[in-house]
């Protein structure tokens, strides 16, 4: 249930609870045969929450892609210090209301350094999105392929993979991630973050893929393919994998907010993205010292992060509801 047993609550995937029951994979697999992508989109389009979430995700993605363009319009890079925007007599407090919001600095400036918060948010979006999406991609590839292997081939393969999954899921993941990240050299932290998050993330998807594969492997169409002389690889990738599509999409969408939260949390704790590269979690971490005098400093990255996690959570939740409904559960 809890993906990383810690107080990092955003790392918890949304679970309806019923997914753990043994009959759920069978029902889900059966439904997946009937549901089409078109129907799912039609149902989602009329859901206000899902569309708002999708809108915000698209916005953040665009902002991340267009970061250099946006900062050239706003006129400040994320690394430039602006001594004129802070008041040295007040310990470096931003000048102006709401943490120094002005025509010059749209989201205000960092107290102490005077760096432009808008620029840092925009570049921080790159970090958050790229790490979370890469981790999701890697987790999905690992989880799906290992889950398929365990479910289809069974026997010793299944035994080994299942044991590894049990071990990883019983592991104190967050503390261990911190331990690993703090022990390894800070070279390419982003890539390291992706790998570490994925290593502990894939069992949650693989477990479900494995269950569904096991029940799909018993179905007539798989038997027919086998009788027609199809190879094991062909059956797995051509016959079984397409039927897992909706499950994989739902599970991956639901995993993204967890990874965004994990990245931000690790950066918050100082083992994530290395400064001065901006990351939302790290910005919030830096704002802790200033929260009483300059609340805008934590509100801006906090709200951006919260909305992004919420958007993915709501979208994934609605997507699941739609897929479940199509499966007639």
């Amino acid at each position: 249930m809890t993906s990383f047993p810690t107080d990092l609550t955003t790392a918890q995937p949304v679970e309806a609870g019923t997914d753990d029951t043994p009959e759920a994979p069978a029902a889900a697999a059966a439904g997946a045969l009937r549901s089409g992508a078109g129907g799912t989109w039609q149902a989602l389009r009329h859901d206000v929450g899902a569309m708002l979430g999708l809108g915000y995700i698209v916005l953040v993605t665009l902002v991340a892609i267009l970061a250099p363009v946006l900062t050239s319009i706003s006129g400040w890079t994320p690394y430039e210090f602006d001594q004129t925007a802070i008041d040295p007599n007040l310990g470096g407090m931003p000048i102006g209301p709401w943490g120094g919001v002005s025509a010059e600095h749209w989201f205000g400036v960092e107290p102490g350094s005077g760096r432009d918060i808008f620029a840092r948010i925009v570049y921080g979006a790159r970090v958050s999105m790229s790490i979370a999406l890469s981790a999701t991609l890697l987790t999905t590839v690992l989880g799906v392929s290992l889950g398929l292997m365990a479910g289809y081939f069974g026997g010793r393969v299944d035994l080994v993979i299942s044991r590894v999954m049990d071990f990883l899921m019983a592991f104190p993941a967050l503390i261990f991630m911190i331990a690993v990240l703090s022990a390894l050299p800070a070279g390419n932290r982003s890539a390291l973050l992706v790998v570490v998050i994925s290593v502990f993330g894939w069992p949650y998807l693989a477990r479900i893929v494995r269950g569904q594969t096991m029940s799909l492997a018993q179905r007539e169409f798989v038997e027919a393919a086998r009788a027609a002389g199809a190879s094991g690889t062909r059956i797995v990738f051509r016959e079984i994998l397409p039927n897992l599509r909706s499950t994989i999409i739902v599970m991956s969408t639901l995993a993204v907010p967890g990874y965004i939260g994990t990245e931000a949390g690790l950066s918050f704790l100082g083992v994530g993205v290395v400064p001065p590269a901006p990351s939302w979690g790290q910005m919030i971490s830096a704002s802790v010292k200033w929260y009483a005098v300059d609340p805008a400093y934590f509100v801006v990255p906090g709200v951006c992060l919260f909305l992004l996690v919420l958007s993915f959570t709501v979208l994934g939740d609605r997507l699941r509801a739609v897929v479940d409904a199509q499966e007639g559960r």
Binding site: D7, T9, G265, I284, F306, V309
Partner: peptide, 13 residues
Amino acid sequence: LTSMSIPNYVLAL
């Protein structure tokens, strides 16, 4: 859904 999405440290602040 909202409570799940708000990071601990943001809520704390």
